[in-house]
């Protein structure tokens, strides 16, 4: 079969052989797929969140334990106070980063 006939067949098929689903099907499909994807996403995030919390608690416990072994109470105020400030600033930075990431995810989903 020559190319011209093939092009003609392609043209005919593309113009007249595409089947249209019933009215409203696309809208229903969109709603279902969006709902399903969001459900999966939140399930996966819940697992990651729980895992992150466990890791964080373990790390804090371990670090506190090590600090006590090293003699945290024996530290002079000039070392102890900056250490406390450093810890607090790290926690605040973490909170800010987490809220920024959350805001970005919400904005991305709404755009």
């Amino acid at each position: 079969m020559n190319t011209k006939n093939e092009v003609t067949i392609k043209k005919i098929l593309q113009q007249h052989a595409i089947q249209e689903p019933s009215a409203g099907f696309n809208e229903r499909l969109n709603i279902q797929v969006t709902h399903q994807t969001k459900l999966n996403f939140s399930k996966k995030n819940e697992i990651k969140l729980s895992y992150g919390k466990v890791v964080l608690i373990l790390l804090i416990t371990l670090n506190t334990f090590i600090l006590f072994i090293l003699g945290l109470t024996a530290l002079t105020p000039s070392v102890f106070i900056p250490l406390i400030f450093l810890t607090i600033s790290v926690i605040i930075t973490m909170i800010i980063i987490v809220s920024m990431v959350k805001k970005k995810i919400i904005t991305d989903n709404q755009d």
């Binding site: 249209e20 969109n30 939140s42």
Partner: peptide, 17 residues
């Protein structure tokens, strides 16, 4: 994958037919 409504809609509209 992050659940973006617009992206999902675009994919569904592009390929459903």
């Amino acid at each position: 994958k992050l659940g973006s409504d617009i992206a999902i809609r675009e994919i569904v509209d592009s390929y459903s037919k």
